[in-house]
Write a protein that binds this DNA or RNA. Structure first.
Lengths: 358, 358
DNA sequence: ACAAATAATGACAGCGCTGTCAAAGACGTT
DNA sequence: AACGTCTTTGACAGCGCTGTCATTATTTGT
């Protein structure tokens, strides 16, 4: 069933058009000079007054503020930054937004940045290294105060740009590779390995891996390697691997596990997923075909998403502190801008969540 | 179980510190003037060459490009914009990022903007009107080429700023209120009403509403009003309403429905949720207490999220075209910047998904 | 071959703001 | 009363780039 405005009616005409809407007009915004004139002071005094009022007499300050208010003055930060101020914009490059993981990170970043009146300029690379490179170049041309990036297997060119950016750079999510400048995250390898140890400890000897297209997601790949490493330490090897193209999602997990089970018999099988949403999809599939979890099929996710924990059977997973990564990355950046000393690598750690699905 | 880097080891020392990292150095970036000098042309010719090369001889163009490459030149768009160019930054104000709905919208926005080499500067209001007002002022001070906002019951001040911004403004998600400039979205009221009609058509006469804190979310409120309106047209009134503080989420829905059922007996009861994730939580609760859906308890969500459709029983919901809203909003903005005529209100419509939960 | 058009280049000023340095006034001290 | 100190204000230049207009080289038409 499809509905449009005109079927279900409302107070608004759907398709009027506008060329000279209210916001196409050419009225020019007031400048600092006009505020200064209105307040009867010099431009620079007005500037100082509006920036916290250091070295400005109380009376003057009030006069300038009143003038600014009356004229509806909005400072032009382009000019301000160009003239010598700190930028107060932070470039943020993420590989994806369809995974709630990065929405969480962005959320954490934005929250902290905003407290310092900074704002993220966003770029999404879709896990494409060349795209990422172009993005970094583009964003850097705005001369941001710093840059935060969750790298998508970056090119040499990207790394060179970041190293020469002249501003603080925070690489987030994984702390295994040596950072260009700073890194905030967790050891993805260790997380994968921890899961392996846990599963082995629970007695599983048949373990399969199911993931979205891992070739472009370096962190998912590292986790898988950690998993295999951990398994190999108990002389277990992966029984099977299923990789499906496209970003991780509930339906994808559902489909992937169906394919897996076409080849591999359940019964004491544990399946590790690249992300919790995939695992939830698998759980739904199991419900659909009346497979008992965990007896017939054990499931383990990654990221500790809310949805996994809200399942009737809480999902075994590894909690990654995504919002905290965003928070810490922003704080690290801001601290460096204040000239403070900041740890080069910050490990937020992770937590293995022993759910009821294993 | 908690793991840190040092427990599970890796190649990186956790806490080295850095003050004069690679990116604190004071090396100054090359300017256009230096590129011009290196290429043996005037500044303005270099400028033209690097911007598409109109009115520049082929040979000159190549020389300038080579020089720029050699010097690792990154243009300074602050200066460029200040000197008269279009900004190529678009302010984006969203009420939340913890709801995947806005991550989707942002995704759509970013995709389209990027195709035109534009970038979003992001602000998140957390549904706080005063916060939103400050954000709009802050973002406008970057002189963006335009602004996209999913309003959080905006203040008069916010509306004034938007109306006087001097750039295109797109209000997204709801098209019921009269737009300041342009609007892209759907009629939230009609969506709620459509759901009411559907439920009535399915024979339900006892309908409850379960939502997150709706007082700050104007669109959820409008949907609820639409629902009530639609029900009233069949002389049905809401049996009960449960509102829980905090953003919508799976666990919250689970808890909310538990509370509802403490007061209201199931059996032919249909529950409408403010969002699909809430409804999924309710579904999980029902599984936990062995309530049969839809016989004992019918569930209807909103937004048509992937998770709802991946449930063993697909969730009845209303599909909102979030990514498309983002896409269209960006396109509308960009078209206006090209001087084209754009529909003042664009209705992306919605689709009622008749699932198996009703 | 010469005027007229076109293509290619450059000089200049200025976008709106802030850092630096200098000056002027207010105040207290000996 | 002369001096130093602190507070408050301003003049000036310049951040790096682009729009405008002017100038010079190159082509075309007849």
């Amino acid at each position: 069933m499809n509905y449009r405005e005109n079927r279900y009616g409302s107070a608004v005409m759907p398709t009027r058009d506008t060329r000279s809407g209210p916001n196409t007009g050419g009225e020019t915004r007031p400048t600092l000079a006009e505020v200064a004139r209105a307040a009867g002071v010099s431009e620079i005094t007005a500037s100082r007054a509006l920036r916290g009022g250091v070295h400005v007499a109380r009376a003057t300050l009030e006069r300038v503020e009143a003038a600014a208010l009356a004229l509806n003055y909005v400072p032009n930060r382009l000019a301000g930054t160009l003239a010598g101020g700190q930028s107060r914009q932070v470039a943020v490059v993420l590989p994806s937004l369809s995974n709630s993981v990065f929405a969480d990170v962005l959320n954490g970043l934005e929250t902290q940045l905003e407290q310092a009146s900074h704002h993220p300029i966003l770029g999404v690379s879709n896990y494409d290294p060349l795209h990422e490179e172009r993005l970094v170049a583009d964003l850097l041309s705005w001369r941001p105060a710093g840059l935060v990036i969750a790298p998508a297997s970056s090119t040499e060119g990207t790394r060179r740009m970041l190293a020469g950016a002249g501003v603080p750079v925070v690489e987030i999510m994984d702390i295994d590779p040596a950072p260009i400048d700073m890194a905030v995250g967790l050891s993805q390898h260790a997380a994968g390995r921890a899961m392996a140890h846990y599963l082995v400890g629970r007695g599983y000897r048949r373990v399969a891996y199911v993931g979205h297209d891992i070739s472009t997601d370096p962190r998912a790949l590292t986790r898988k390697q950690g998993l295999e490493r951990g398994l190999s330490e108990a002389e277990v090897t992966l029984t099977a691997t299923v990789l499906l193209p496209g970003p991780s999602s509930v339906p994808l997990g559902r489909e992937a596990v169906a394919r897996l089970l076409a080849d591999v018999p359940p019964g004491g099988l544990a399946v590790c997923f690249s992300n919790d949403d995939m695992a939830v999809g698998a759980m739904f599939h199991a419900m659909g075909v009346a497979l008992k979890v965990p007896d017939d099929l054990a499931l383990a996710g990654f990221n500790g998403l809310a949805i996994g924990q809200a399942l009737p059977l809480p999902l075994t997973s590894v909690e990654s502190r995504r919002v905290e990564i965003g928070n810490l990355a922003a704080k690290a950046l801001l601290s460096r801008l204040e000239g403070e000393t900041v740890a080069r690598v910050q490990d937020v750690g992770f937590r293995l969540i022993p759910g009821a699905t294993t």
